[in-house]
C-alpha cells in the first residue's frame, strides 16, 4: 500500500478533502518525529510505540580497499507493535 492509497482511504473515512488529509497527516508525522527527536517515546494506543534508538558506532571492513572504516553512531526510530495489534493480526 502506497502513501497515496493510504491518504485516499483516510479522506473517505474522515470526510476531509485530499489536501486537508495531506496537511493533517504531515502534521501528524511531524508531531511524532518531533517528539522522538526530543528524546521522547511516542506510544499510540492500539498501534504501537515509536522510540528513539541509538546505533553505536561500529567498524566495518571494506574488502575491496582492505581498509577498516568507522561508521559514526546514529539515531533512528524504533517501533514496537502493541500487544493489541499483535493479537489482532494473529487471531483469525
Amino acid at each position: 500500500m502506497t502513501n497515496k492509497d493510504l491518504l485516499e482511504k483516510l479522506s473517505r473515512k474522515t470526510n476531509f478533502g485530499m489536501d486537508e488529509v495531506k496537511k493533517l497527516s504531515s502534521s501528524l508525522i511531524d508531531a511524532v518525529l518531533e517528539g522522538i527527536s526530543d528524546g521522547n517515546s511516542v506510544s499510540i494506543q492500539g498501534f504501537g510505540s515509536f522510540e528513539p534508538r541509538e546505533k553505536a558506532s561500529r567498524k566495518i571492513y571494506n574488502p575491496t580497499t582492505k581498509t577498516y572504516m568507522v561508521v559514526a553512531p546514529k539515531k533512528t526510530v524504533g517501533y514496537k507493535m502493541s500487544a493489541i495489534l499483535k493479537d489482532r493480526l494473529n487471531t483469525k
Binding site: 501528524l28 508531531a31 517528539g35 521522547n40 517515546s41 511516542v42 506510544s43 499510540i44 494506543q45
Partner: peptide, 11 residues
C-alpha cells in the same frame, strides 16, 4: 512518554 493525547494536541 508522549501519549496519544499529546500528539493530538500537537496536530
Amino acid at each position: 512518554k508522549l501519549s496519544f493525547q499529546n500528539i493530538v494536541d500537537l496536530i
